[in-house]
């Protein structure tokens, strides 16, 4: 199996690893049985994601997609962050092996879950369906994801 140079770069030097104390939103998706867990911490100010950190248990692709996805939404507005697709993450990484595309789904879902948590804490109405457990279709919108290349 071959990872792109970009994937290996983000695996070897992951951006935004860590936790945020007093985070404004936290999202955790996946499960240990399936082999991937991603946890995202957000800091939000005036609707802008001013800081984002992640902790990931998973394969090289899981770590690289966490790193890339957090980079892609950092400094963006919440609305912009919600438009992030797993496909865009895969493209930004220069592609993923087909068996690893689900890691990018997890990254997209982790960010959405953290945003939903931020909404919940602030009493903001939303219609985000969340709950990706890393085993496909738990979220109810698996068909929206790019699953193969």
């Amino acid at each position: 199996m071959n990872y792109s140079t970009k994937v290996m770069d983000h695996f070897a030097n992951p951006r935004n690893v860590g936790e945020i104390e007093n985070a404004d939103g936290i999202g955790e998706v996946g499960n240990a049985t399936c082999g991937d867990i991603m946890k995202i911490f957000l800091k939000v100010q005036d609707d802008i994601i001013t800081d984002i950190k992640f902790k990931t248990f998973g394969c090289g692709a899981a770590i690289a997609t966490s790193s890339m996805a957090t980079e892609m939404v950092k400094g963006k507005s919440i609305d912009d962050a919600l438009t992030l697709t797993n496909k865009a993450v895969v493209e930004a990484l220069g592609g993923l092996p087909p068996a690893k595309v689900h890691c990018s789904v997890l990254a997209e879902e982790a960010i959405k879950t953290a945003i939903a948590d931020y909404y919940r804490r602030n009493g903001i109405e939303h219609d985000l369906t969340i709950g990706c457990d890393g085993c496909c279709n738990a979220c109810g919108h698996a068909d929206k994801h790019l699953h193969n290349q």
Binding site: M8, F11, G35, F57, A62, I63
Partner: peptide, 14 residues
């Protein structure tokens, strides 16, 4: 415990 083997194999490979 707490980590995933493929990541470990990649780090060792590096």
């Amino acid at each position: 415990e707490g980590i995933e083997g493929e990541s470990l194999v990649l780090l060792l490979d590096m």
